[in-house]
Design a protein around this nucleic acid. Sequence first.
RNA 1: GCGGGGGUUGCCGAGCUAGGAAAAGGCGCAGGGCUUAAGACCCUGUCCCGUAGGGGUCCGCGGGUUCAAAUCCCGCCCCCCGCACCA
Length: 939
Amino acid sequence: MQIDFAAIEKKWQSEWEKNRIFEADPDEKPKFFITIPYPYLNGNLHAGHTRTLTIGDAIARYMRMRGYNVLFPMGFHVTGTPIIGLAELIAKRDERTIEVYTKYHDVPKDVLLGLTTPEKIVEYFSNEALKALKGIGYSIDWRRVFTTTDEEYQKFIEWQYWKLKEKNLVVKGSHPVRYCPHDQNPVEDHDLLMGENATIVEFTVIKFYLDDNEKIIFPCATLRPETVFGVTNIWVKPTKYVLAKVNDETWFVSKEAYEKLTYTDKKVELIKEVDAKDFIGKFVINPLTKNKVPILPAEFVDTDNATGVVMSVPAHAPYDYVAIEDLKKNEEYLKKFNLDKSLIENLKPIVLIKVEDENYEIPAKEIVEELEIESQNDVEKLEKATKVLYKKEFHKGVLLEITGSYTGIKVSQIKDRLTQDLIEMGIGDVFYEFSEKPVVCRCGTKCVVKLVKDQWFLNYSNPEWKKRVLEHLESMKIIPDYYKEEFRNKIEWLKDKACARRKGLGTRIPWDKEWLIESLSDSTIYMAYYILAKYINSGELKAENITQELLDYVFLGIGDVSEVAKSSKLSKELVERIKMDFEYWYPVDLRSSGKDLVANHLLFFLFHHVAIFPPDLWPRAIAVNGYVSLEGKKMSKSKGPLLTMKRAVKEHGADVTRMYILYAAEYDNDADWRRKDVEGLANHLRRFYSLALEYYTKEQKQLTKLDKWLISRFQRAIKETIEAMDNIQTRRAVNTAFFEVMADVRWYLRRGGENLGVIFDDWLKLLAPFAPHICEELWHLKHDTFISLEDYPEFDESKIDVGAEAIEEYLKTLIEDAKEILKFVEEPKEIYISPAEEWKKEVVNIVLRCNNMKDAMKEIMSNEKFKKMSKEVSAFVKRAFKEKKDGLLVFEINEFEVIKENIKFLEKELGVKVSLDSDKIPESKKKAAMPGKPAIFVI
RNA sequence: GCGGGGGUUGCCGAGCUAGGAAAAGGCGCAGGGCUUAAGACCCUGUCCCGUAGGGGUCCGCGGGUUCAAAUCCCGCCCCCCGCACCA
């Protein structure tokens, strides 16, 4: 049947808008404030947005029908660099960009070419987004829309930053970034030619002093500073190094290290190039133990890794152990450096870590021997030995007495503490290095780690702040629940975040105007801004009115109305009204978002709320959903493929698009958009529509047992749908409310049901959150209210009819069994059916007697005749217990009567004459009968 | 490496925290019905064997507990995602 989805959708969208039914203001009902992260507008809204937003809208509509006053607002995010980047690419007529934006974002080429400034892009895409969001029928309160570059919004952001500053949560500091010396810019992943997987690792530098010249420092770099207690010597590569002035010290480092140091916050100056050979054989002092140890040559030293000077810990480092053994064996090499063999022979490994349950003499020695490592050239095995040993010691190792005050500390917990101590003592430092190399910029230049100085940071590492966030997390609802653990881990992992930028759209840091506030940091508590936005859009509130005092008062209750009104040049009444709005709507009851925002936005969302607002205004719940792929392929905004929201709606209709995306996947699972499946769903909806036309307005007849079955089954669907929606399981909800009910409807019609209309009022309501337009249209066949504002159906236990359900179940199995038998009979003439009353009583009695299935099964299974059919019996007993729990043991149904009453139906289904004459059934067949499974005999 | 999730029938996916028949629902495929026809719709089948409702196999792999395990316990293999200054 042809249905003009588009016309129906347009009609109701305009009705909703005209009647302002989604504009939410405080009232006496309980409130529900749901927000979805505003989309970033460097392109059109796509299927990914569609998923997150449709889930949000379905929840909003559901909660509204459940009796809540629901606020579902939306804004647009445009701060940051990508929009500027896009404007530049369009201005440059970048071919790839033009292709992607015309082909995938559906921007007409002539329009696209005009989008050469960030402002034009923002204007264009926000208009498009608005059209898309309205065209899919989201129940958004559009009076509150805004864009993050609005002057008023910037006032709000400034306020937020002042609050953080007051609490000392924005601090100055330095941080290491990947940096391209040629471009003189930090590099992001997509700017890299090589080394995308490299991370920045922090080496601890320990300053060994040259014995005969205390001014020269050998800065040994290590990832395991605790091994400083086991140093027997230090290694340098026999090649050219340099002496450099680093701050006020003289360091001996590799040439590469010198280069790298120039990008740090240290003052660095080259003194001269030196030959490492001139230092080999000399001694340095271990600054912590004061031990005097020799400088020795080693070929394995990589001058391009950290300082190019390393400590040797033969007890715990396989490389060091082997290198020393190599030296002992190679007299010629020793001679070359004028080294005395006895010096080497006297190097005794110093063990400083004990691994629980193991009794190694010298761990490195043992593993080297175990793996039969011959020399330091055996790199592959050495890497393996190192990895195995380090891992074991890191996880299970404990420091021995030799480490003095660190005795007993776990290796896994020592690094940061010891490094900190060393720095405080003036004998330590840190050196940042890439975890893998090379790291090369797109321009071909090798990247370095640069320490950006004097930057503003959000002090997320602040333990007090973290603690409060963690505590709040425990009281929140996180959906799905295992993401709570994920959040816990991420909160602990979160470090200080640089929050200032040179480039991009955004708000300037109010006390340091040369910096822009980084765009993730300006979108943390903006849900509060939706309250203001209504008044801003109505013209009652202007940028100049939005003073610090006003926001302090509205959001935090600080200050006095009269003064606030005066300073903000607003009426007292308006100030109070805004404040009351805020107090009514806040906190956010649910933030529903894509899973990509867990480790960033959602985290910051929590941190900033905890920092700025009192505990009763902290968010209550977070829900996380997965991505959408297209025909199995990952979508990409910048490369394609991409399906825009508008296109999906245009091609398939809003309701089909919504329902498909809600049904395609649950929670954080990814959904796949498959055109064929979408069309299949459209058919289902058409079928639903025509069923409604046929039965909804039809006059009802007297209710039969079958009708009661339908009603009973439908009650179960209501219950499960509500349960699913309360858990934000839209897939389960649609599956139940639509597909499973549909399956029951099919059976109902097949059984000759005529009163399908009895469930339709409720069925339409049940489906309204998912397919609101169609439901609204059909609802109006009989009503003149908005279904969107009706009460959601409630589970009514009194309508459950276990007896009716048992009958239909019974008939289904009976038909199934009979058909199974009929397969084997060539020309069936008649089928005899006879219930097994005796066995049934026996089993039912046991079930009634026993408290649980386990005991019942034990008893039943002790009977040989049941044991033979353990599968069938257990199934029956399981059902019996379920029914027993539901209050009635429906297997009390009179099978004989049921068959008798439905004999016509059975004959129609089976295509043969059905008879209830048990005398005609041979004993052998009667034996196969079970409770609920009558004896069947075909002639 | 660390952390989170997961491996179920041709596919997508329930079920797995309360152990109880090859295991919901959707898709696909095959056959049949309806229809002038197509589409839609309805029915049946879709692990293997079977001329009586049965038997066998089965939920990543290997063990164990139990009358009974996809579900509980132990060991192993494999896959996906995050690890940041980017929205």
